Amino acid sequence: MTRMARPTLLITGLSGYVGQGLARHPALATWGGRVVGTYLNQPVSFPGLPTCRLDITDAQAVRDLWDDLHPAVVIHTAANFAQPAHLAASIVAGTQHVVTATAQHHARLIHLSSDVIFDGEHPPYAEDAPPAPLTPYAHAKAQAEVIVRAAGLADFVIVRTSLVTGLAPVDPRTRWVWDSVRQGRPITLFTDEYRCPVWVDDLAGALLELASLDSDFRGSVLHVAGPQRLSRHAFGVKLCTFAGLDPAAITADVVAASGLLRPRDCTLDIRLAQATLRTRLRSVDEGLLSAQSR
């Protein structure tokens, strides 16, 4: 197999919510070659999409898989959320191994990052805003970006996104909100913690668009998030209202009163993505309205 004859798209973290969104997206069918996905703890199955287990913190395993597949493009979404003690290592060491192998094969890398690399005090954040991470997860994601930039990759895009949401299937955060309200469990959401939720279909479409070998966007950072800035509380209220649940069951609070260290406003400036991508980034309201009409 050669890259020119039948290019391979390799997706790490296929068992994650974004990975599964990529696997289900109609645009994947337009890829002109083979698609392979990896998982760590949860095997997944999609028609016509081969998968394999991969621990990205195992450098030799990563090298072996890349040598076997010779990927033309790698979409890197993997992180070990199932084992919190190993999350940072999966992000930092795992990204280092993925980046090294991708560079050796002269492949394009689409690296998924996060809005939480910012401190939340100077929104909205453009692509050239300096990271200022507050939490261990954020520090790991910021370090992973440094690794990508320093690797000497000829072709890469760092995609920063926000809260990823979806209804078919329901994303884990939405499921947690709905289950808490239905089961009468206490749930508190902050009125002063702002994010830009993005529909998983839109994020997956953007990632696949950037992965296309005829895409001209490369060697930089792109913010791909929703156009609607919402507090976590307002977002939870919208989700409950959509599901016919009483949003009054959600306790409203502020970050300062919680004693938690977390960025308050990670609003991303997405004008570059809106101007350069064919994929349309919908608001939360648009997505919910569309779901209601189906």
Rank of each mutant, 00 (worst) to 15 (best):
L207H: 02
W31A: 10
S293D: 06
F46R: 05
R160K: 15
P43T: 03
Q104F: 09
H25P: 02
A273K: 00
R229I: 02
T8I: 06
L213H: 05
Q292C: 14
T2W: 09
A59R: 12
L153F: 04
P123F: 13
T135H: 07
V221A: 03
R185A: 14
A204K: 06
A61M: 07
Q143T: 14
A154H: 03
Q183P: 00
S15C: 09
Q292R: 11
D68C: 14
G33Y: 08
L245N: 13
L268C: 01
V164C: 05
V177A: 11
S212D: 13
Q183D: 15
Y17S: 07
S290L: 09
V148K: 09
V170S: 10
I158H: 02
T135S: 09
K141Q: 06
T188L: 11
A206W: 08
G219P: 02
D155F: 14
P172C: 09
I117Q: 02
R264F: 01
D216N: 09
A78I: 15
D214L: 03
R24F: 05
L289W: 06
C52N: 09
V98T: 05
C240M: 08
V146R: 15
R218F: 04
A138E: 03
E286F: 06
P123V: 10
E145H: 03
T161Q: 01
Y137A: 08
T188P: 01
H76C: 02
I91V: 14
G236M: 15
W178D: 04
G37L: 11
P71K: 15
R294M: 10
N80P: 00
T165A: 15
